[in-house]
Amino acid sequence: MTLENGRYSGRLYRALNPVYARDPLSGRGAERFGGRFNAQGVAALYTALDPVTALREANQVGDLQPTTLVSYRGEVGPVFDTRDAAALAGQGLTPDALADPGWRIAMLDRRPVPTQDFATRLIAAGYAGLLVRSFAAGARGLNMVLWDWPALSVIDDEDRLR
Results as ranks from 00 to 15, higher is better:
A87H: 00
P95I: 01
A137L: 13
A86F: 10
F37G: 10
L45N: 13
R121G: 11
Y13F: 15
V52F: 08
S71M: 08
D156A: 10
N17K: 10
Y13K: 02
D23T: 15
P18T: 07
L152M: 12
V79T: 05
L98R: 10
A39T: 14
R104P: 00
V52Q: 09
L45K: 05
P95C: 00
G129H: 11
L49E: 02
A151M: 11
S9V: 10
D148I: 01
D117L: 15
L98G: 03
V52T: 13
Y20S: 01
D96K: 14
V145F: 06
R73L: 15
A30T: 09
T82H: 08
A15G: 15
D84V: 09
Q60C: 04
F33P: 03
V76A: 15
Q91P: 05
P101K: 07
A15W: 12
G77Y: 04
D63P: 11
L93T: 03
E75L: 02
M144H: 11
A106K: 14
I155H: 06
T68S: 09
A87P: 00
L122Y: 12
G102F: 00
V132H: 08
A39P: 03
A97T: 09
G138K: 12
N38H: 03
M107Q: 15
A30S: 14
L93A: 13
L55K: 04
N38G: 06
I123M: 04
A86T: 14
D148C: 14
V61N: 05
R104K: 13
R162C: 08
G90M: 13
R121P: 11
P114I: 02
L45I: 10
M107G: 01
R133Q: 09
P95Y: 11
T47G: 12
A137W: 06
F135I: 15
F37W: 03
S153N: 08
T47E: 08
F118P: 07
G6W: 03
W103N: 00
V132A: 12
R22H: 13
R14E: 04
N5D: 09
A128M: 02
Y72D: 13
